[in-house]
């Protein structure tokens, strides 16, 4: 039996830790997203003025020590409105992205696991949903059901779920064929434990990237809706709405239009960098199986 004892302490098997995501692009992305979230949460503490308080005397001013980013046509402080402006869109896009990812992952894994007619029918349904442009579908829903936040969240989820299901399905398909899933099926495990234990940890990279991407797209979509007048209602401070309100004064007080755009851009760029960083960090992971 001596040759059966495996030597445990060799260089290759020395215990190593799971690598932490330390890529610069990921850190930069997470920083930008975190900054936006913190600002939105702490807006009441940071904002120098109430965001919806008009002041006819101060209307349409450039930047000054009293109003760092100037004021808009109703004399509201642009800085305060920018600080508050992300709350509405971020709340909606975060909720919608979480819902999208939850439904998308479960359905994507299920269809990859079940295959057969279930897969066939679901894919055809998704094709038909995918063939409708997102903004158009959203406009129809908002026109029909009103522009309340729950309606927009639900509509965005339905619009973005199909693409996510497809991506997750593709990732899960490459896992369900592997022997460890076969082993789980052979020992009689059902769908939920197989998904949670065998499939999910191995497609987590895809799901994280998709989450960040979807969040940024929904953010843009909701801002576009507000810009078009179907999202946030005046006088709510919202970046999309602010651009819409102030774009006629672009030559007079450019900051009132540019500031919300820059704010939105930092969030979107942050989300994309984070998505990219996750993809790369986990990509390296894939080769070493979660180790460095």
């Amino acid at each position: 039996m001596t040759n059966l004892t495996v030597h445990a302490s060799n260089a290759r098997t020395r215990a190593r830790r799971i690598a932490l995501p330390t890529r610069p692009s990921l850190l930069a992305g997470l920083f930008l997203v975190g900054l936006n979230v913190v600002v939105a949460l702490a807006a009441p503490l940071l904002a120098p003025y109430p965001p919806t308080q008009p002041s006819a005397l101060d209307a349409i001013e450039g930047s000054s020590s009293a109003h760092w980013l100037g004021t808009d046509q109703l004399g509201r402080d642009v800085l305060s409105r920018v600080l508050y402006g992300g709350r509405y869109a971020m709340l909606i896009s975060l909720s919608a992205a979480v819902l999208t990812v939850v439904f998308g992952t479960v359905l994507g894994c299920l269809t990859a696991y079940r295959r057969g007619w279930f897969d066939e029918v679901l894919m055809r349904i998704l094709d038909s949903v995918l063939s409708v442009p997102a903004i158009l579908a959203l406009l129809v829903v908002v026109t029909a059901l009103g522009s309340g936040a729950p309606v927009i969240i639900l509509a965005a989820t339905i619009v973005y779920c199909p693409a996510l299901i497809r991506v997750v399905r593709a990732a899960a398909l490459s896992v369900v064929g592997l022997d460890y899933v076969t082993a789980a099926r052979a020992r009689g495990e059902g769908f939920w434990p197989i998904m949670a234990r065998e499939i999910w940890p191995n497609i987590l990279d895809v799901v994280l990237v998709e989450f960040a991407m979807r969040a940024s797209w929904i953010m843009l979509l909701v801002s576009s809706l507000s810009f078009l007048g179907f999202g946030a209602n005046p006088p709510t401070p919202d970046w999309g709405l602010m651009v819409s309100e102030n774009r006629s004064l672009l030559t007079v007080v450019p900051l009132a239009t540019i500031a919300p755009i820059v704010a939105l851009a930092t969030l979107i760029v942050g989300l994309n960098l984070a998505a990219d960083g996750f993809a790369k960090a986990r990509g390296i992971d894939r080769i070493t199986g979660g180790l460095r």
Binding site: D179, T182, A183, A186, G188, L204, G290
Partner: peptide
């Protein structure tokens, strides 16, 4: 099929795979 077997009969039959690398979940 495995899912419809009596649990006692199911565990009496066990598989060992060719490729040890793909037969273990890399994240567990």
């Amino acid at each position: 099929s495995a899912a419809r077997r009596d649990p006692a009969a199911r565990r009496k039959v066990q598989l060992v795979f060719q490729n040890a690398g793909t037969s273990l979940n890399p994240r567990r």
